[in-house]
């Protein structure tokens, strides 16, 4: 009984709004705003009407969605490796950040889409250009947060490790990185949402596949239910990827006494 009540408390407003949306769009009959049921129908038609042999998935899934997903995850993974690696090195160096700190803060403030033309002429249209755009945009929060995190190792922890003659390898993997992890995860979450945005943007510029391309293309064809479907998909992707990352974070930061306060509240209040 209490679970039913809990479910109602959590979802009744959401469902109510969806119903309201349905009624309003049916009444208004505006082509820009198709009712949610029409969007759902379109989603089924677009992606889930494929043959049994392909798990009912259509070509769109294989041609557009999966490659896009691959670009986001590929680009973001590169950014993670680069950001955590460089960030650890810079955080441990006493003067490293003095040299590159302002430069990186400036790079972080650049709107990444405006560099797409430069990446385009340098790398030509293709996966490399898209990956470069995603990596350039999403690496900074990871890098700067890692530096911050690495610096959060306190003097007593350093003395303790030194008094045990902790070799470099163990010092980094057992002390420095775990100490930095809460900050790193905050950076990872931010950079994942940036990576998703840049995936869409890089696909809007002169390519012929991917979610971003389909989104623009459906708008240009005036196929508004399809346009809404792609928007819903992007929302779902954003939600799903973030939820996955949060699950990993909860596992890895389970040791935190107050992990509830910092992670759960800032991300899922």
């Amino acid at each position: 009984m209490s679970t039913v009540l809990g479910f109602l408390r959590r979802w009744s407003l959401f469902l109510g709004l969806v119903v309201l949306w349905e009624l309003a769009t049916r009444l208004a009959n505006d082509p820009f705003f198709p009712p949610p049921t029409t969007i759902l129908q379109k989603i089924g038609e677009l992606w889930f009407s494929g043959p049994v042999s392909r798990l009912f998935l259509t070509d769109d899934v294989y041609v557009d969605i999966l490659p896009s997903l691959g670009r986001v995850l590929g680009g973001w993974s590169i950014a993670v490796v680069l950001g955590v690696g460089l960030g650890t090195a810079l955080g441990r160096s006493r003067t490293g950040m003095d040299y590159v700190g302002p430069l990186f803060a400036f790079m972080r403030a650049i709107p990444p889409p405006t560099l797409i033309p430069v990446f385009l002429v340098l790398l030509s249209i293709g996966t490399t250009m898209k990956l470069t755009t995603i990596v350039f945009g999403s690496v900074w929060p990871i890098l700067l947060n890692t530096v911050d995190g690495v610096r959060s190792v306190n003097a007593t922890q350093r003395d303790t490790a030194r008094s045990f003659r902790t070799p470099q390898r163990y010092w980094i993997t057992l002390v420095v990185l775990p100490a930095a992890l809460p900050k790193i995860f905050a950076g990872l979450r931010l950079s994942l949402s940036i990576a998703l945005i840049l995936m869409v943007v890089s696909e809007m510029v002169g390519v012929t596949d991917g979610i971003g391309f389909e989104l623009i293309f459906s708008q240009q064809r005036f196929d508004f239910p399809a346009m809404w479907s792609w928007i819903v998909l992007l929302g779902a992707l954003g939600y799903g990827l973030n939820a996955l990352l949060l699950a990993v974070e909860r596992r890895m930061l389970g040791w935190q006494q107050t992990s509830g306060a910092t992670t759960a509240k800032t991300s899922g209040a």
Binding site: R9, L17, I216, I231, L234, G268
Partner: peptide
């Protein structure tokens, strides 16, 4: 807190939509 629980699903649905995905829609409207 009650209101927070009730709106949570809505917020969690809206927030992850990348702003650029809304460009085509906003330009239409």
């Amino acid at each position: 807190p009650g209101l927070r629980v009730a709106t949570r699903a809505v917020v969690e649905f809206l927030r992850p939509i990348p702003s650029v995905a809304l460009i085509p829609l906003v330009i239409l409207v």
